[in-house]
Design a binder for these strands. Sequence first.
DNA 1: TTATATGCAAACGTTTTGCTAGATT
DNA 2: AATCTAGCAAAACGTTTGCATATAA
Lengths: 146, 146
Amino acid sequence: MSSGRKAKESGRIGRWTPQRLAILNVFLQNACHLSAEDVYLRVRNNGTVLGMATIYRNLEFLCSNRLLRRYSSGNAGAKYELNDDEAAHHHHMVCRICGNLIDYSEFVKRELSLIDEIEKELEKNYGFKISSHQLEFRGVCGDCRE
Amino acid sequence: MSSGRKAKESGRIGRWTPQRLAILNVFLQNACHLSAEDVYLRVRNNGTVLGMATIYRNLEFLCSNRLLRRYSSGNAGAKYELNDDEAAHHHHMVCRICGNLIDYSEFVKRELSLIDEIEKELEKNYGFKISSHQLEFRGVCGDCRE
DNA sequence: TTATATGCAAACGTTTTGCTAGATT
DNA sequence: AATCTAGCAAAACGTTTGCATATAA
């Protein structure tokens, strides 16, 4: 038999510990390109003490629950950003000198219409079920060109 | 004063040691998505003994001389492929279950025409000098969908 | 109450580096 | 001969894991 009451919606995706909340808050304040280390430092600056293992476990947790997105920006470690609709509609430029990362959204409409079309075709032609894409440009930013 | 003769074209990009040649040969035989470890194993199978440090130093060398291209495929380590014109005109799909990587080139013409246009605009709008791009789809491949 | 999360430290895989000996031009 | 490269082992780096303790639900 089932338990007394059916727990409305809560508890389905895990427990909201102070550490987990603090990590998510960093992204809500500051929704852009954070490495695990970035998150670690910001959470601690905000007054919550925690270890790197907790950072990694929670970043993974938040990603599998679609609250964050992870992407690998070139050489260094992974980066994370909010996975809201707004964040979903920009792409990146990375400077290969200073590593700086710039968002742009100028072409998103055209990019996405092509990308949607490509996704459908690839699913048909290769039996792939596509769930995400990444478009990234690399080069040298204005500051690094002297 | 300059030395006796002007060394036709040779020596400009370094020395062609047996190890370096063997590494490049792996890609010439087999131009697709090799990790450092893949290269290591294939070179040794081909009869040239060498260490991982040599692999990494040469992959870096070949990339900076534009003979190879490096890209970071999701979570695992970097992968490398030939940087010839043919290789330059395909993009990737990665299976996030088995890590398998598929090339496709169906849409390259349309992708590249949009990408070229975007690059020009981004250079104008952000002062970025763009030298490469990467478009990648992630999902689940046919085999991993049961 | 009990499954789930934390913290720490140690393990892990990939990549880089310092140094000496060796090979290429 | 002079410079560049290989080899080895150790270190660096980002990330993951085992295990005991603490905590949210």
